[in-house]
Design a protein around this nucleic acid. Structure first.
Length: 445
RNA sequence: UCCUCGGUAGCUCAACAGGCAGAGCGGCCGGCUGUUAACCGGUUGGUUGUAGGUUCGAGUCCUACCCGAGGAGCCA
């Protein structure tokens, strides 16, 4: 057996005899030639089996190899412009081939399949090119998130997943029995981050969060990953500067490191190249004016109906989509009405009906990818807001306590990994951005 | 939870106005020295989502239920 290599490094081995361990992705034949597309997890390469070049047993095995059979193949690497694959352009002239297991009938063929079938076979679907590319982009997004934060002075601090009380309202929580007491799967780590900034200054938590919303849209999962940075001595304006640096870094990192994967997904990268600071900023009030103008201009009565909105309401996805169409990069909308946001947000100076909140809306209809705010730092005001919202003061005792010992203005935001990946990768539905997504009505496999 | 659409071979779908349940792909057998979701010939393959009902006759019509998709609301 020759030197075992990974397909992603194949360009370094032209002219050498090498061995690849992998699985059969696809096979075509042409008489005395058999073309095997072999994947090894790092890429796909075409292995060419020519009848006169191998033993009759090897040719017979290659000619009858079923899709997804595991194999070890040895041959000489040759640069060949006609060869398909990832990266493509290289192929293996096979001298020997050993079948580890002849696979049973593999259900996912290179032809079309419906989403129900694919989701039921998610454990196999992740082997397919586009899913493979997508999950590699996801991994890069997650690494870029940690890399930027770690190199800008943030400390990763783990927050609990089993939590005693709601972060923001009680209707969307998964309840778990905790030795006879009800506890809830975390929908945010933010309140804990507000404690840990007083120990570390700049922190983030990063992990799965859970929402029991009965949402059936292309932007929702019941279990999704969120990174939540929180910063002491930081106001809303500074927060937006952090966010635009952070998001731009993530996008540019994927552009640099995942070119092949973006090509597999046929993503138009020119829109991503524009994602550089500064991002446009508009207030909620201005957003409403713009929506009114769009509404007045459209001849479509259905869109007119969808875009109807009164001051004080949060945006629906048609509003977000129409607003972001007016810009060529992510859009900040700040200063939402207090009534449609969480209790802990700092009021706008002189306008208590507005709070110092900001959402970042992704282009191309992917919706809100971050939500953040400056937090209330005054203990009396915080207590008052908790009462106004009818929340149980007892559950928030420790949270209010934070405001008694060196309270400072502070801000933070949460970024949803799946929406960010879906946007960068240019795929339609967030469910494909997770290896095993949990959606309303799907917890298998 | 609401609205819309759908469920037929392993997969993707067709089946006129209620009248013999079909095609392509996949699998299997054979052919081909450059295939890219190859191509050519042959072959295999069905409890039409479930339970009732109408009818001489139901994939098709009616009722209920189950499952899925798309969207809304809610949200990242």
């Amino acid at each position: 057996m020759a030197n075992i290599i990974r397909i992603e490094n194949i360009a370094n081995h032209v002219g050498e005899e090498v061995t690849i361990q992998g699985w059969l992705y696809n096979r075509t034949g042409k008489g005395k030639l058999v073309f095997l597309q072999v994947r090894d997890g790092s890429g796909i390469v075409q292995a060419v089996v020519f009848r006169p070049s191998v033993s009759p047993e090897v040719f017979e095995a290659a000619d009858h190899l079923s899709q997804e059979s595991s194999l070890v193949v040895t041959g000489r690497v040759r640069a060949e412009g006609r060869a398909p694959g990832i990266p493509g352009g290289y192929e293996l002239d096979v001298s020997d081939l050993r079948v580890i297991q002849q696979a049973a009938d593999y259900p996912i063929t290179p032809k079309e399949h419906g989403i129900e079938f694919l989701m039921d076979h998610r454990h196999l679907w992740i082997r397919s090119r586009k899913q493979w590319a997508l999950l590699r982009i996801r991994a890069t997004v997650m690494r870029a998130i940690r890399s930027w934060l770690d190199s800008h002075g943030y400390l990763e601090v783990s927050t609990p997943i089993l939590t005693p009380a709601a972060g923001e309202g009680t209707t969307t929580l998964f309840e778990v029995d905790y030795f006879g007491e009800p506890v809830y799967l975390a929908q945010t780590g933010q309140l804990y981050n507000e404690a840990t900034i007083y120990a570390f200054g700049k922190v983030y938590c990063f992990g799965p969060t859970f929402r029991a919303e009965k949402s059936k849209t292309r932007r929702h999962l019941t279990e999704f990953w969120m990174v939540e940075p929180e910063v002491a001595f930081c106001d809303l304006e500074q927060l937006m500067e952090i966010e635009e640096q952070f998001v731009s870094y993530i996008v540019q990192t994927v552009l640099q490191e995942r070119k092949l994967e973006l090509a597999v997904l046929e993503r138009d990268t020119s829109a991503l190249e524009r994602v550089q600071p500064p991002f446009p900023r508009i207030s909620y009030d201005e957003a409403l004016d713009r929506l009114a103008a769009i509404r007045a201009a459209t001849p479509d009565p259905e869109l007119k109906e969808l875009l109807a909105i009164e001051w004080g309401s949060d945006f629906g996805s048609p509003h977000e989509t129409e607003l972001t169409k007016q810009f060529d990069r992510p859009l900040f909308v700040y200063g939402y009405p207090t009534a449609c946001k969480a209790f802990y947000m700092e009021p706008w100076p002189g306008r208590p009906e507005v709070c110092k909140s900001v959402d970042l809306l992704a282009p191309e209809g992917y919706g809100e990818i971050t939500g953040g705010s400056e937090r209330i730092s005054d203990p009396e005001l915080l207590l008052q807001r908790i009462h106004q919202e009818g929340l149980p003061e007892e559950a928030f005792r420790w949270y209010i306590d934070l405001r008694r010992y060196g309270s400072v203005p502070h801000s933070g935001f949460g970024l949803g990994v799946e929406r960010t990946v879906a946007w960068i990768a240019g795929i339609h539905h967030v469910r494909e951005t997770q290896p095993f997504p949990r959606t309303l009505g799907q917890v298998y496999p």
